[in-house]
Design a protein around this nucleic acid. Structure first.
Lengths: 185, 185
DNA sequence: ATTATACATGTAAACATTGACATGTTTCAA
DNA sequence: TTGAAACATGTCAATGTTTACATGTATAAT
């Protein structure tokens, strides 16, 4: 499927970047739906260069530090455009270790269940708060009135991330309520 | 992390099973938060056997078809119990190809955006309907009053899957509404 | 009887991803 | 000025996952 290929192609299409820049984008803008380590990014950039989907220009930073600024080629743009319009079947549901633990709830005592779910709830609430503040910032600094724009892309994935986290928090709260009101040990 | 290890251990702990049974469980009961192909399951069963976490008994099905029914050992139970109580940091958000496409929305025209989001919405609505009917069935056939039971485990993960799908559907609807009401090409 | 589907178990190559190893420069604050 | 953090690029081994290869039995319907 080469999904990383398209993630990189899409980012470089937005604007020319180095491998390091890509790494930062994966950790910031794309963090709520994608991730890649630099050890995966650099070899993929080499591959994409060999396939003539991107090219690079070496730029000197300061005195002698070399960096490679990658730009998408026409061929790259064509492939990216073809990919974005593909209609593929729904992916299998993503793996979720906490749900796996939750499924085997019979292995815990009531106190342990409450402790596990509370800890998870706190983590997701924190994450939700971060996303909400990112949204506040986005709405203050960016114009999202144009639906066919990078800004609108930024907006909808952030909105989606918030709704997903909210659903997770709601679920954890419902589980906790059900467990707390039960009259078992 | 050996997550598959614990998924298998947890399932075999619920009741003795063959590799084939596990495969079916991954596709049915665990489908909303885990998956594994038989090509991954059989080698892992061998590994767990070598580690003395499970043992098997060969059973003849019909005339000569041999199947291996695996049972968890005391050691296996101990490791499983230790795992379920671990407090680990939040996993990175799962990858989602549709969100990746959505992020690069600037590559599409308004009509293409509507077409893409509508297709995705239909798929998630179908999935949601399947989950809801599974829930209806679960509530009719199982007693979930005991919070420390396999049935309650089945219930909460199904509930979580429904809430997650509902959030996805809501998100897609919001995106579509925003795109439709915009007055661009 | 035949045939399709489900049951049943494996291996091997390719691909995707992570974690560790490896190195060096630049910038900014104390 | 010195030290930490950020900038910058790579490789390699191990692990995780998918796809394809490979084989055979049992069961239920036609």
């Amino acid at each position: 499927m080469r999904k990383l290929k398209y993630a990189i192609l899409g980012l470089i299409n937005r604007k020319p970047m180095t491998g390091y820049d890509l790494m930062i984008e994966f950790d910031k803008a794309l963090a709520s739906f994608w991730h890649a380590k630099h050890s995966q990014i650099y070899p993929e950039l080499k591959k994409l260069t060999n396939e003539n989907l991107i090219t690079y220009e070496t730029v000197i930073q300061g005195e002698k530090l070399e960096k490679k600024v990658y730009t998408i080629t026409e061929k790259g743009k064509q492939e990216l455009r073809k990919w974005i319009l593909r209609d593929e079947p729904l992916e299998p549901t993503p793996k979720d270790v906490f749900r796996l633990r939750a499924y085997f709830i019979e292995l815990m005592t009531k106190d342990e269940i409450i402790q596990q779910f509370t800890a998870q709830l706190e983590k997701h609430q924190k994450k939700l708060a971060v996303l909400q503040s990112a949204m506040k910032n986005l709405l203050e600094t960016k114009d999202i009135s144009n639906v066919i724009s990078e800004e609108f892309g930024d907006y909808i994935v952030l909105k989606g991330a918030i709704m997903r986290e909210q659903a997770y928090v709601d679920w954890l709260n419902e589980c906790l309520a059900a467990v707390r009101k039960s009259d078992q040990k």
